[in-house]
């Protein structure tokens, strides 16, 4: 199920503003890839081009290609809706649907595109997804309560359950822990380790310890100054990146000398 991503010479624009310039990188299947870099360097922007979520923003567009197992996501005829069913996304702030119960939240994506699902299958899927997100034990007695009644960390895991319920190949996470307390953060980091057996995971984080803890490979993005485009500086195995980075800028950022 899990897939690899190859990005070739990708530029991302917001109208005329070039936000990310000439990024080429490869993301391996069944691994965790972390994007780090100072705020505003285009990590979120770039991440969103991997499931065409940037298209939600008026004026945002890309040049270049993003290949998922060799298929260009930007080829004419590729439906962004279909892309997003293969490439799920978890956001910075937990965003369960407040009008839906916990169980309904998990099933929200499954019931899209006119798919029907039997009651028993639905119950099974709710359980397996919530188990997959390490949330089942905490919520199994109140599946019909609103998703917004959970704590922030639980809500974020509910969002992960909702994302994996549609069985994507790739899971994108944009600073999934930055709104959470340290204990919830640990719970989600543990979860990522389990999820990478089945999914390709890409995580944006501004927390370098987190990148070092959870990821197999790390990509460092940087920006020359405000108004300048963000660029990929280097990408390597996480251990190498944090011990012997090849670029001076990476070393400075990692050792906390700026950013």
């Amino acid at each position: 199920m899990t897939k690899r991503i190859d990005v070739n010479n990708l530029n991302v624009y917001y109208s005329n503003f070039l936000a990310v310039e000439d990024v080429s990188l490869a993301i391996e299947p069944k691994s965790v890839t972390a994007f780090i870099g100072p705020s505003g360097c285009g990590k979120s922007t770039f991440l969103r081009t991997l499931n065409r979520m940037h298209e939600v923003i008026p004026g945002a567009r890309v040049e270049g290609e993003v290949l998922m197992d060799g298929v260009n996501l930007y080829e004419a005829g590729v439906d962004p809706v279909a892309v997003r069913r293969h490439v799920g996304m978890v956001f910075q702030r937990p965003n369960p649907f407040p009008t839906m119960s916990i169980a309904e939240n998990v099933l929200a994506g499954v019931k899209l595109n006119n798919k029907r699902i039997s009651r028993a299958d639905a119950d099974d899927l709710v359980e397996s997804s919530l188990r997959g997100a390490n949330l089942w034990e905490e919520v199994k007695d109140r599946l019909d309560k609103p998703g917004s009644s959970l704590s922030g960390g639980q809500q974020q895991r509910l969002c992960i359950a909702r994302a994996i319920a549609i069985k994507p190949d790739i899971l994108l996470m944009d600073e999934p822990c930055s709104a959470l307390d340290p204990i919830s953060t640990l719970a989600i980091e543990d979860l990522m380790q389990e999820l990478k057996d089945e999914y390709t995971i890409v995580i944006v984080t501004h927390n370098m310890q987190q990148a070092a803890r959870v990821s197999d490979r790390t990509a460092f993005f940087n920006i020359a100054g405000t108004g300048k485009p963000g660029k990929l500086i280097e990408m390597n195995d996480t251990a190498t990146m944090f011990s012997t980075p090849s670029e001076k800028a990476t070393e400075d950022y990692i050792s906390g000398r700026f950013g």
């Binding site: 499931n51 979520m53 939600v56 809706v81 279909a82 997003r84 069913r85 799920g88 996304m89 956001f91 702030r93 965003n95 369960p96 649907f97 407040p98 009008t99 839906m100 929200a108 994506g109 899209l112 595109n113 969002c159 909702r162 994302a163 549609i166």
Partner: peptide, 26 residues
Amino acid sequence: PKLHEEAALAMGATRWEMVRMAVFPF
């Protein structure tokens, strides 16, 4: 909330499904 609209779109909702899922309930 943009948050909820994006939640719907990110799991592969069409625009109309997003409206039913995020806009109408809200």
